[in-house]
Write a protein that binds this DNA or RNA. Structure first.
Length: 584
DNA sequence: GCCGTTTTCGGCCCGACTGTTTTCAGTCG
């Protein structure tokens, strides 16, 4: 009897092992090895369980002899002795302590061993009773820090959506650029890499007069409170309890600092390893030759990458997912941009649960420079969304035709978003499906089904010759609902074989498929994609930028994305499925 | 614990800041 672990579950176990080893004072390299393995497992598209049975575990970078064996034990026996033994020494709750800013592995261990503190509540009580200051390495200041850390821990477990952070950061940066003495300014960190969620906002400023600029930053209109201000760094609180860290650097170091603070950590580590082999070192001040301590680059990012013989790697790719290797081989993708997008392939109107009229959608689409817009209202079985009956479909088509006559600059497509039933069937018969310009289908219920059930439904929909796009294929909602269990490799394979497009849903808390999935689906299966906003109102059409951001992070190029083609080409491309499946 | 066109052993990214310390450990990004 084998245990069917998900990758996330296995990753979690190794993550905890890493943390426990850290608390136990184990070799930092061993700690890092487990951490690395956990990351590798989590971002692996194939199921680790499957890889185990195929004997391919060791092919995953970061999984060696010892960890492969432990994974095997997990699958074969359902448990892991090594993990259980560690848990007896280091209670799980102690790991929670490390999530409090200011408490690391060393302090967590002392707190547990000396005062038997096991929970954040224990910690809070001990601080209040001033018990901490007698411990070795602790003082009054440490206590203060921990009090603040507990508050931060309690308040912010959720990460900020890119859509909340990006517009705000852009506004701040444009203000900064107007300040006298500011030579350059940019968002850095995960925000610049356009990650789907952000921990905090980092902004980098190049100036020769940091003192004056810091004073100006304090008076920016968005700033509600100054949390800390030094010579080169200032932290402020802006609207809705959001922290923004500004770092000020000299213009001659700006490129190096931007590269350094943009990350990702993993990308930078790889670059530093390469630098080290060349006898160089790289830090936030520049790229240096160690022997002579002479500066090789630092003014801008391009020259740093150039020294390595690399083109500038776009920030969304900097995740150590093979981008450095690809860049060396000249195989970096030309990632898709907003201006490549010719239309939106997923919008709702008042014919189902959307707020916008067809005409308003057409006008807004023209403003965005689109040449088409697929109106994919829900089909009848989605009652909560007032899904369309066949009569509604007919009525809507008449209106679409009228509007298309009135606005020749843009074409509204007669689309639909079907519901994939529990048995894999959809709302309408094939004859009706054949009348649409574009047919999408989504799983809207039954999220609790088993992996086999949900996969079966989705595969069955992919086999339907009239379904062009599978929408939000994993069903996740960021910060609210995890992805449902689905066998993505199977979905990717069949989608590629049948010529079915996979949606990249641009709704800011969906972004589904997500970046890692896109990369795998494209690279390993040759899938093609459709970017849609799932707009339920006019303002949502602008969310396309978050879809494009995610596409960039997923290495997608113009040619991979259906709506980067002209309308004529779109029709040709989607018709290929019916040809492949032998339907005329 | 992992990994290898300079290695199967000996490495493993780098620096700032803070606080508790008389020269450094811990935490963070």
């Amino acid at each position: 009897m084998y245990t069917d672990w998900s990758n996330a579950e296995i990753a979690q176990i190794f993550e905890e092992i890493s943390e426990m080893l850290e608390v136990a004072g184990e070799s930092p390299f061993r700690v890092a090895a487990y951490q690395k393995a956990a990351n590798a497992i989590r971002s692996q598209p194939e199921r680790i369980v499957d890889l185990f049975f195929q004997g391919k575990l060791r092919e995953v970078r970061g999984i060696g002899e010892s960890i492969a064996q432990k994974i095997g034990e997990l699958i074969e026996s359902g448990g892991l002795r090594y993990y259980e033994e560690l848990k007896e020494k280091i209670p799980f709750s102690v790991l929670k302590l490390m999530q409090v800013p200011g408490v690391g592995p060393k302090k967590a261990r002392i707190l547990y061993e000396e005062l038997n503190i096991q929970t954040v509540d224990d910690l809070e009580k001990a601080v209040k009773e001033q018990k901490l200051r007698d411990l070795k390495g602790f003082g009054a200041k440490t206590e203060e820090n921990i009090v603040r850390g507990i508050a931060i821990y309690r308040q912010g477990q959720e990460r900020l959506l890119l859509s909340d952070a990006l517009p705000l950061a852009e506004e701040i940066v444009s203000h900064l650029r107007e300040i006298e003495g500011v030579e350059q300014a940019s968002a850095a960190g995960s925000l610049r890499r356009l990650k789907e969620t952000i921990g905090d906002i980092d902004i980098l400023v190049a100036t020769l007069d940091s003192e004056k600029v810091i004073e100006k930053i304090m008076r920016l209109p968005q700033v509600k409170e100054v949390l800390a201000a030094g010579e080169t760094k200032i932290s402020v609180r802006v609207q809705s309890d959001l922290q923004v860290d500004f770092r000020l650097v000299k213009p001659e170091n700006y490129g190096a600092a931007l590269q350094y603070f943009t990350g990702s950590k993993e990308h930078n580590i790889k670059l530093r390893e390469i630098a080290k082999k060349k006898g160089w070192k790289i830090n936030e001040y520049g790229l240096f030759e160690v022997a002579t301590n002479s500066k090789l680059a630092g003014q801008n990012e391009e020259e740093i990458y150039q020294m390595f013989g690399l083109p500038l790697i776009p920030p969304p790719l900097r995740e150590d997912r093979g981008e450095i290797e690809a860049a060396f081989e000249g195989k970096l993708p030309t990632i898709i941009e907003f201006f490549d997008i010719k239309g939106d392939l997923h919008v709702h109107s008042i014919y189902s649960d959307g707020a916008a009229r067809l005409e308003e959608l057409a006008v807004e689409g023209i403003k965005l420079g689109y040449s088409y817009l697929a109106v994919c209202d829900h089909a009848q079985r989605l009652r909560v969304a007032r899904g369309m009956t066949p009569e509604d479909v007919e009525k809507r088509l008449k209106e679409i035709e009228k509007i298309n006559q009135r606005y020749p600059e843009i074409k509204l497509l007669n689309g639909v978003e079907l519901n994939i039933e529990n048995d894999g069937t959809v709302d309408y018969p094939l004859e009706l499906l054949a009348t649409f310009d574009l047919v999408s289908a989504s799983v809207h219920w039954g999220f609790g089904q088993t992996r086999e059930e949900i996969t079966y439904r989705t595969l069955k929909a992919i086999e339907n010759p009239y379904i062009n796009i599978i929408c939000h294929p994993t069903g996740r909602i960021i910060n609210k609902r995890p992805a449902f269990e689905i066998d993505l490799p199977k979905v990717f394979q069949l989608a590629a074989e049948t010529g079915t497009f996979l949606e990249l849903n641009s709704y800011p808390d969906r972004l589904d498929l997500k970046d890692e999935h896109l990369l795998i689906a494209k690279r390993d299966y040759g899938c093609k994609f459709a970017i849609g906003t799932d707009a339920h109102g006019l303002v949502h059409l602008a969310n396309i930028r978050y879809g494009v951001a995610t596409a960039q992070r997923g290495w997608l190029e113009k040619k991979d994305v259906l709506n980067s083609y002209s309308l004529t080409e779109v029709f040709t491309l989607i018709k290929e499925k019916q040809k492949k499946l032998g339907v005329s």
